[in-house]
């Protein structure tokens, strides 16, 4: 049996268990919150009899375990259940929210990779000199700014004061691609911190790799500078960066709640936020499954990439 295949199989099995655990935990936590969907639906007329009626109509009066089992039984058929708040299928919610989230994530990653690796390699080449110190201190400073603060700052300066860009995506619905200007600020905010951590990781890895005997040998034997940097040194600096990149993509797809809320982008983060506010448990659970699976798959992919980049690590038992 191939070691790689059994590794992937083991990790996928573990991933299924992890996702199940996440769903259980999320369910338990939403159960523990005061109030439920009936209270939320009753709105500004919290009449006990009315709440009880809604509860009965939504079948919320049954025991929690029964409700969970009911919902879980639908999963194998791809049925995520129906929303308590609107009665629409949960899958519909997820599909709607996924578009804007994926668009933001792809744009961010498309800029993140060249920027992160390029600046990292550049800083490593100039280790200890002005350019390196500049890149290092700026990345550290930007990394220290939380995204909600940066988001508000950018809106204030670039949108409200200077009026260069729309402050939010209000009114554009899910057709964000038709209004690229509205995407600039959110992508900038999403990009800010991941770029910094990636640059610093790549820089550290590259400094080690550039000082290594194998890079010295390649230089000694007349391989050109750029080739040495990108094909001989960089592969050794990539493994930790690949892990970081996977975590970043995971974060972009599963939890950019603050940025989506700030710029009013109808992505998965907004769907999650609304669902929690309405105690819409099936929607929250559906999102938990999607986020769990994404996390498992992305981390597995990162481990496979790392294995390819550091093949020796596969040797030790």
């Amino acid at each position: 049996m191939s070691g790689l295949r059994s590794f992937v199989a083991r990790r996928l099995l573990l991933g299924v268990a992890q996702t199940a655990a996440v769903v259980l935990l999320v369910f338990a936590l939403t159960e523990m919150l005061p109030g439920d969907a009936a209270v939320a639906l009753a709105g500004d007329q919290p009449d006990p009899a009315r709440i009880e009626a809604i509860r009965e109509a939504l079948r919320l009066d049954r025991p929690a375990v029964e409700r969970l089992a009911d919902w879980a039984a639908g999963l194998p058929h791809g049925d995520f259940g129906t929303s308590l708040a609107s009665g629409r299928p949960v899958a519909r919610y997820i599909a709607d929210g996924f578009g804007p989230t994926l668009l933001l994530a792809s744009l961010t990653v498309a800029l993140l990779v060249p920027l992160g690796f390029g600046l990292g390699v550049l800083a490593a080449r100039h280790e200890g000199r002005l350019l390196d110190r500049l890149v290092s201190s700026v990345t550290l400073a930007v990394y220290a700014v939380p995204e909600f603060a940066l988001g508000v700052l950018l809106v204030t300066v670039l949108a409200l004061r200077l009026g260069w860009l729309p402050p939010t995506a209000v009114g554009y619905g899910t057709d964000l691609l038709g209004h690229p200007a509205a995407l600039v600020l959110p992508v900038l905010v999403l990009l800010a911190r991941p770029v910094c951590s990636l640059v610093r990781l790549v820089r550290a890895g590259m400094i080690d790799a550039l000082a290594s005997p194998y890079v010295a040998q390649a230089r000694r034997y007349g391989v050109s500078g750029a080739r040495v940097r990108y094909t001989h040194a960089l592969p050794n600096a990539l493994a930790p960066a690949a892990q970081q990149l996977a975590r970043t993509i995971d974060w972009l797809l599963c939890g950019v709640i603050v940025v989506e809320a700030l710029y009013v982008i109808p992505g998965l983060g907004t769907v999650l936020l609304n669902a929690v506010a309405e105690r819409d448990v099936p929607v929250v659970q559906g999102l938990a499954v999607v986020f769990g699976v994404l996390t498992v798959v992305l981390n597995l992919a990162a481990d496979l990439v790392a294995r390819r980049l550091a093949p020796r690590s596969g040797v030790a038992a």
């Binding site: 194998y214 034997y221 391989v223 001989h232 592969p235 050794n236 980049l309 550091a310």
Partner: peptide, 13 residues
């Protein structure tokens, strides 16, 4: 071994 790149195949250099 020190001058052989651990992340690249033997043929690379």
């Amino acid at each position: 071994a020190t001058v052989l790149n651990p992340a690249r195949r033997v043929r690379a250099l």
